[in-house]
Simulated scan of single mutants.
Amino acid sequence: MTTHHPETRRLVYGHAQMHDCLAFADARTWGVARRIRTEHASNPAGPIDDDDHIYAEYADDEPFDINEVGSVVEGDWPEMVTARAFKVLPQGLRARFGKRVPTVHNGDYLDIPVDREAELVAELRQHGYEVTRDDELINVLDGRGFSPLAG
């Protein structure tokens, strides 16, 4: 029997179609989405300030739906879902299961072969992670469904 600890890391993962590999993410609420740091653009779901109350109706713990964010900047926000593994997976597992791949415009991503899924998920669970597969969410987080370049 597994016990739930408040500090348990919850990850969602799936097959990222754009790069044909596994991707991992942990942004599932508006509060988490607001705290995503961006390097080249402002965060359209970003912190609420006095000048912009457009997303104030969403509580921080409300499920995040990227399709409700009207000002998604192609290529800058959100970051490639396949790049999030650099932040959410332990370094040792990234090194064992993935390969860093550069892109021309959007930085590096971690290529985790789909056929390594069972072994990697088992390792994550041994490390105390709660892991759920959701291919649709992973691909929405990667821009599929609202990007004119994704199809």
Score class of each variant (00 low, 15 high):
85 A>Q: 08
150 A>Y: 15
29 T>G: 14
146 F>L: 08
128 G>M: 05
6 P>Q: 00
129 Y>K: 03
55 Y>I: 06
50 D>K: 13
107 G>R: 09
145 G>W: 02
83 A>N: 01
119 E>Q: 11
106 N>D: 15
35 R>V: 05
26 D>P: 01
12 V>D: 00
142 D>V: 12
131 V>H: 08
57 E>I: 02
136 E>M: 13
1 M>F: 11
117 E>G: 10
115 D>V: 01
103 T>M: 11
20 D>S: 07
115 D>R: 07
7 E>F: 09
54 I>A: 15
108 D>G: 06
16 A>K: 01
44 P>H: 09
47 P>R: 14
137 L>G: 02
118 A>Q: 14
145 G>R: 13
124 L>D: 07
37 R>S: 15
103 T>Y: 00
130 E>L: 07
104 V>T: 12
38 T>R: 04
136 E>S: 10
18 M>H: 03
7 E>S: 14
72 V>N: 15
7 E>G: 08
100 R>H: 04
148 P>R: 15
117 E>A: 12
130 E>Y: 12
130 E>P: 05
121 V>Y: 01
76 D>M: 11
131 V>T: 05
120 L>V: 01
34 R>N: 04
129 Y>S: 00
43 N>R: 00
47 P>C: 15
61 D>F: 04
127 H>R: 13
97 F>A: 05
151 G>M: 15
12 V>E: 06
148 P>V: 09
24 F>L: 01
125 R>M: 13
27 A>G: 07
16 A>D: 06
124 L>A: 09
86 F>V: 00
4 H>D: 03
97 F>V: 10
59 A>E: 13
45 A>I: 00
137 L>M: 04
29 T>H: 05
142 D>E: 03
92 G>H: 01
97 F>L: 00
26 D>G: 08
146 F>T: 13
32 V>E: 15
130 E>A: 11
36 I>R: 06
95 A>T: 08
75 G>M: 12
91 Q>F: 05
20 D>W: 09
7 E>V: 10
3 T>C: 02
82 T>R: 00
8 T>A: 03
54 I>L: 12
39 E>V: 10
9 R>N: 04
43 N>K: 06
144 R>P: 02
74 E>C: 08
59 A>K: 09
21 C>Y: 01
17 Q>N: 04
10 R>W: 04
95 A>N: 09
140 V>W: 14
32 V>N: 01
48 I>Q: 02
88 V>S: 00
107 G>V: 00
124 L>R: 08
27 A>V: 09
142 D>Q: 06
112 I>M: 06
12 V>F: 02
78 P>Q: 11
132 T>N: 06
55 Y>E: 03
84 R>Y: 03
2 T>S: 03
5 H>A: 14
121 V>W: 09
73 V>Q: 08
64 F>L: 07
142 D>W: 04
104 V>M: 10
9 R>A: 08
76 D>C: 08
71 S>R: 06
40 H>F: 14
64 F>A: 05
45 A>H: 03
8 T>D: 13
24 F>Q: 11
84 R>I: 08
51 D>W: 13
139 N>G: 03
104 V>D: 15
123 E>S: 10
128 G>A: 02
111 D>S: 00
145 G>N: 13
74 E>P: 10
49 D>K: 04
8 T>H: 04
103 T>S: 05
2 T>W: 11
31 G>V: 11
112 I>D: 11
77 W>R: 14
77 W>C: 13
83 A>L: 01
131 V>F: 14
